[in-house]
């Protein structure tokens, strides 16, 4: 690919998809799951998370960007506890994901709220965007979409050196969904448009900005302006497909719930300006905010989402 075939002016990325743990640490947990199941892994998470909270200030700091916004009146002592709870929940979600891959899908019960709504949207036979976020476990969400009987595509960025395994990789199975690479030609946008026009399902993350300076708008989120990507809504407008905001969150030791939080319909011909998409991005941000109010420790963006950027849309 030629450099000039990539997207326009790139904005420095403020987040990473890489795990904070080493390959060795991951392997230990995979073995624990094989030996004693998910509960043994959960038990061992306590000392590991304690180590990260007490001895790794850089990791603790990464939780504070979000926690300061979510609990603005929280005392610093409470913030240590909040960091612990947030990292513990992340560890449990990762252990759940590995358990599903290693021990099988029966390890987890996934309840879908809004199944009829989802089937009704697919009944329109014109493609669907499932807008996910780094809240709860989007991998669990994807593992439960088999009933759709439609090809599922996912825009997935995997950085070099990312050692985190997807659930199907543990079982040695092939990927159950088609991955579109955002580093590909024109950020994968033509591929995404193509699958939507074929009536397929496209899963995108709605809470992390990737790509050019024009690819986001700033929206109020937890009391301050944060950049949110517009690409899902631009594609929805171009392909004339609905956007379903989907959250997947842990509700018990072996339970997850999938919830269709909102259906967003974006009109056609909204043009080039990011501002035209602001009302639709705002609807997503409002749903995400409602989610983190209800599930404060299941939001896993460990970077400063509110950081000022050199350019605004």
């Amino acid at each position: 690919m030629q450099p000039n075939e990539r997207q326009g002016p790139e904005r420095p990325r403020t987040w990473t998809s890489r795990s904070i743990g080493s390959r060795f640490q991951h392997e230990i947990f995979y073995r624990l799951i094989r030996i004693g199941g998910r509960r043994l892994a959960y038990f061992m998470l306590h000392p590991v998370v304690s180590y990260y909270v007490l001895c790794r200030p850089s990791v603790r700091r990464k939780t504070h960007y979000y926690l300061r916004r979510r609990f603005p009146d929280g005392k610093s002592s409470a913030r240590w506890v909040d960091s612990y709870r947030m990292l513990l929940k992340l560890g449990q979600v990762l252990a759940d994901r590995a358990s599903v891959g290693i021990l099988g899908p029966r390890e987890m019960r996934v309840e879908l709220s809004g199944r009829e709504k989802l089937l009704q949207l697919l009944g329109e036979r014109r493609g669907l965007i499932l807008l996910l976020s780094h809240a709860g476990s989007w991998q669990v969400a994807l593992s439960a979409l088999g009933f759709l009987n439609l090809p599922v595509n996912l825009l997935l960025d995997r950085e070099p050196g990312d050692i985190d395994r997807q659930y199907f990789e543990h079982a040695g199975r092939s990927c159950p969904y088609r991955v579109i690479d955002p580093q590909g030609y024109l950020g994968g946008t033509l591929e995404m448009l193509q699958v939507l026009k074929k009536g397929e399902v496209l899963c995108l993350m709605g809470d992390r900005v990737f790509g050019s300076n024009r690819s986001y708008v700033k929206i109020d989120f937890l009391g301050a302006q944060a950049p949110f990507p517009i690409s899902a809504f631009k594609l929805a407008s171009a392909a004339s497909v609905p956007v379903a905001v989907l959250f997947s969150y842990k509700t018990g030791i072996d339970r997850y719930e999938l919830k269709i939080a909102r259906i967003i319909r974006v009109p056609e011909n909204l043009g080039r300006s990011g501002d035209a998409f602001r009302p639709y991005v705002s609807q997503f941000a409002a749903e995400l905010e409602a989610f983190v109010q209800e599930h404060p420790y299941q939001f896993f963006n460990f970077y400063n989402m509110w950081q000022a950027h050199p350019a605004s849309a």
Binding site: G8, L186, G187, T189, G211, I230, L235, A238, G271, R272
Partner: peptide, 20 residues
């Protein structure tokens, strides 16, 4: 001149609009 990047300076979201 290239349409995207260094040429005309269009980006990936423009590609979607251009298709439409």
């Amino acid at each position: 001149a290239p349409l995207f990047g260094e040429g005309l300076g269009l980006d990936s979201l423009d590609a979607v609009e251009l298709v439409v």
